[in-house]
Write a protein that binds this DNA or RNA. Structure first.
Length: 291
DNA sequence: ATCCGGATAT
DNA sequence: ATATCCGGAT
């Protein structure tokens, strides 16, 4: 049952493979969203959009992708830019690590591929900050070469149509179906249809992806390490000439206080600053935190 | 107060 | 396997 190749178990629903594919094409096309990073062949521009769309919704990315691409139009440009400049353009998008990883990916392309992006899924996957979904996104959308693309909107479509009542559905169950459908003549259009139908389903009904085994609730932001990390980074970026750690933390504590959040204790402050340095967000030179 | 969302390090 | 990483909208 798990192996018979043309007749893999097609979810739990009474929907055949051709019926499923037809329905996704029909409803996905009807729900089509025109987005600035769509229908372009430039793999770097697509990579930037895919990385921004990791853990960040379309509405937010719309405010950032055009400005980012104007500032860093090519992998060479991003590789040559300062981390501070790149992080500045990322502020407000969240999960700042992604910006550093994207810049490192650009540096790999600049150093080893004359500024071009790799063509193959496996080589894309090897780039910093590029996982299975992002690598598949670049293949499908930029190169129009088919690759199984499984992210939240796609997951929602498969769960809604093929696992309508099952809870805790693992990606391991979904992936064979996604891969089966991915073998198409039109990988770009097919995956746009999946994304757009998924987005429509979420707008109309309870998020089907909540029935995914990998769905996780977030811990609260207020009072979190994430909040303090982000505030410290913003503070250091605002002082290009460098700022003493104690002074930076005083400014951060004031900002937290305005948000009704207690200041971090000294031990935590040290750990957060050290962690950010280790990850490459800034350096400590002559007692000054410097982007 | 609750919601949304991929990759990486351990 | 599990913990961690952001911020705005609602």
């Amino acid at each position: 049952m798990t192996k018979s190749s043309p007749n893999i178990a097609w979810g739990e629903a009474a929907l055949s493979r051709p019926q499923f594919i037809e329905q996704v094409w029909q409803e996905g096309r009807a729900a089509y969203r025109e987005l600035p990073w769509r229908n372009i062949d430039d793999p770097f521009a697509v990579l930037v959009s895919e990385v921004m769309l990791q853990q960040t919704q379309v509405a937010r990315v719309l405010n950032f992708w055009p400005r980012f691409m104007a500032a860093f139009p090519t992998a060479d440009a991003l590789a040559a830019a300062s981390s501070a400049d790149v992080l500045e353009h990322w502020q407000g998008l969240g999960y700042n690590r992604r910006a550093l990883l994207l810049k490192r990916a650009a540096e790999v392309c600049a150093a080893t591929l004359q500024g071009q992006l790799p063509r193959s899924y496996d080589e894309l996957l090897a780039l910093p900050g590029v996982g299975p979904a992002t690598a598949a996104g670049v293949c499908n959308f930029a190169y129009r070469t088919a690759a199984p693309y499984l992210e939240t909107n796609v997951r929602s479509v498969f769960l809604h149509l093929l696992f309508p009542s099952q809870e805790n559905v693992a990606d391991r169950q979904l992936m064979p179906l996604v891969a089966d459908c991915a073998a198409t003549e039109e990988p770009r259009g097919w995956n746009y249809a999946l994304l757009d139908l998924g987005a429509r389903l979420k707008a109309e009904t309870a998020n089907p992806s909540r029935r995914s085994a990998s769905y996780a609730r977030q811990s609260p932001f207020a009072g979190s390490n994430r909040q303090k990390r982000a505030a410290l980074l913003r503070c250091v970026l605002a002082h290009p000439e460098g700022i003493a750690a104690a002074q930076a933390w005083q400014l951060v504590d004031e900002e937290l206080a305005r948000a009704g959040v207690a200041p971090a204790d000294e031990r935590l402050k040290g750990e957060i600053a050290a962690q950010l340095q280790r990850e490459g967000f800034f350096r400590c030179e002559g007692g000054l935190l410097r982007p």
